[in-house]
Amino acid sequence: MSKNLKNNLIICLSLLFFLLVDLLPFPQLVNEIKPSFLILSFIYWNLALPGKINLVFALAFGLISDFLQGTLLGVYPLIFILISYFCQRFFNQFRPLRFIQQGAIIFLLLLIVKFFLVIDFSNVESSTLTLADKNYVLFAFSFAVLSSFFWPPLFYLLRLYRRRWITLKK
């Protein structure tokens, strides 16, 4: 097996693992605020190995997420592609930041994602552009805060995993 293929498989495995973690059933309240580990791990891989993660990952995992979450087809791939692009474009600036600064960026990014997910594409509410209500806004903030809290441990965990399993050309 070539080194490149092996690395891609290892990245895929970690993303698949976090996809399963996101799927674990919890009470509705926890479901609404629990961090999206798939998105966080996707951000990590884009920052750590920008040359290895391509748009195929974004499209494949985006489509799977669409089917699992019941969203319109194309919504999650769009989110993953945008995340991928911005992470790879700015990874040089992002990496040297402190965790608290990285957390702030993750907070904003995931807040935008959460609000993007409830855009009223089907025009269910003719008066507004979004389906979000007060509760949703509150939960979206909690979700983004929790995600930014989980970022450092996830970062270290994935870094350990990467150093253990992924070998790059010298």
Partner: peptide, 29 residues
């Protein structure tokens, strides 16, 4: 220090690929 590659040699996703994917996703939606 992470990937041992020259930092500025790592190219981000090319703009054309990004645009094509974006259009693809929007078409899907």
């Amino acid at each position: 220090k992470i990937s041992s590659e020259a930092i500025f040699a790592v190219r981000p996703i090319s703009s054309s690929k990004f645009l094509i994917s974006l259009i693809f996703c929007l078409s899907l939606i």
